[in-house]
Simulated assay, not measured.
Amino acid sequence: MDHMSGIVVFKRAAETLSFAEAGRQLGISASAVGKAIARLEESLGLPLFHRSTRSMRLTHEGELFLARCQRILNELVEAEAELAISRTTPAGRLRVSMPVVGMLLMPVLSEFMHKYPEVQLDIDFCDRIVDVIEDGFDVVMRTGEADDSQLITRTLGHYSYVVVGSPAYFARHGVPATPEDLATHACLQHRFTETGRLRRWLFMRDGAKFEVELPSTAIVNALEPLIALAERDFGLICVPHFAVSAQLANGSLVAVLREFEEDRIPFRALWPSNRMMLPKVRVFVDFMNQNLFSES
């Protein structure tokens, strides 16, 4: 910082060719200007000015150094202006971590991209636990509870898992009346890529959670193929409500066992508490809050 302040003083002195005038413009004494120039010349190992009792002019090296200093300081001014704009206008790359289930939110993410074209989304879909700060994410979106004093948390909405199947499947195999009836049905299961475990089908009865032993007619590690298989009458799936909202609306899938659904699950946005909330983060979180699960 001392070196940078010396450059600022030098630039002003070089442009005015007067220590006194440079000092007046900078709000310091002519003596302070002279000392700053002397320290800079000592650091560079060469003189920047030819000085006499009557006049002062730049050396050849001083002229070269002034040209560089002017470019550097102009770059700093432009950088400050860009940062000032970024504090008020949503723009730039936005690094977001989302669970794999978030891939099914692409219509909402696409709407965000249309509304804020100056924000470049950089999304990492994964179910592993990420370190928001160490991994350099601006926002992390996760399901379930969150407890980290280093992060600010905002609940964007809630969703539930529903058991669905096609009308043709139910016409052939009947409609399960209780979760225990699923033992005789074709169950299409989801395997988590990160852990290799099957997702549990949890239900509620009399305020208590429970699960039943299910057959595994097919196992898939992504939700989109599961939904496609269910639409093609191969069996039942248990997926987030928002993942099949379109299919439920058009009738290609039908939800069953709704009275046994487990508690609704929170979907949250998290970001570092020690950072200023940039406009690109604010508008993203606000947009997700307003548009996620609107049909759930």
Rank of each mutant, 00 (worst) to 15 (best):
G6I: 00
T193E: 15
G207Y: 04
A230M: 07
A208W: 08
N250A: 01
D127R: 04
E262A: 15
A22F: 01
R199E: 15
E80K: 14
T88W: 13
I265T: 05
P240V: 07
H114F: 14
D147E: 13
Y161A: 03
Q189D: 14
L58W: 00
E194A: 15
N74M: 14
D127Q: 10
H241R: 05
E63S: 08
S5Y: 09
Q247D: 09
N74Y: 00
E42I: 06
G62V: 04
A243P: 04
G92D: 08
P90C: 12
R51Q: 05
Y159T: 14
V108T: 14
L40E: 14
E82A: 12
D138M: 06
R232H: 15
R128Q: 13
M141T: 10
I37M: 02
R275Y: 02
A249E: 12
L48H: 02
V162G: 06
M1A: 15
A91V: 09
S110C: 06
D2S: 15
R275A: 11
R128H: 12
L188R: 07
L104H: 08
A84G: 13
D127A: 09
F267H: 02
R232Y: 12
P107Q: 11
A22L: 03
C238K: 07
A22W: 01
N274V: 11
V283L: 05
V119L: 06
V283F: 01
M276E: 13
P240A: 08
M277Y: 00
F267A: 03
S31K: 14
T16H: 02
R191K: 12
Q25D: 03
A230P: 08
R51K: 12
A22M: 04
V281K: 08
A168R: 15
P225M: 07
F112Y: 13
V139G: 08
A168T: 13
A222H: 12
N221V: 01
A79V: 10
G136F: 05
M141D: 05
A177N: 12
V175W: 02
G207Q: 05
L257N: 06
Q70K: 11
T59I: 02
P47G: 03
G136A: 07
E111T: 04
L214E: 07
A255Q: 13
F192P: 01
D263P: 00
R197W: 09
L44P: 07
A208P: 00
P117Y: 04
Y161H: 12
E262W: 01
T184S: 15
D122V: 12
A218Y: 06
A146K: 11
F125M: 11
R87I: 00
G92F: 08
R199I: 04
A255Y: 06
L214W: 01
Q120N: 13
L44V: 09
G23S: 03
K11R: 15
T193N: 10
R268F: 00
D147F: 09
I72W: 06
V283S: 05
R54C: 01
S252D: 02
P272D: 11
T53H: 11
R264Q: 09
S252K: 02
W201G: 02
A91S: 14
M276W: 00
T217D: 09
E262D: 12
R54V: 08
T217Q: 10
V163H: 10
Y159E: 08
L198T: 07
A168V: 13
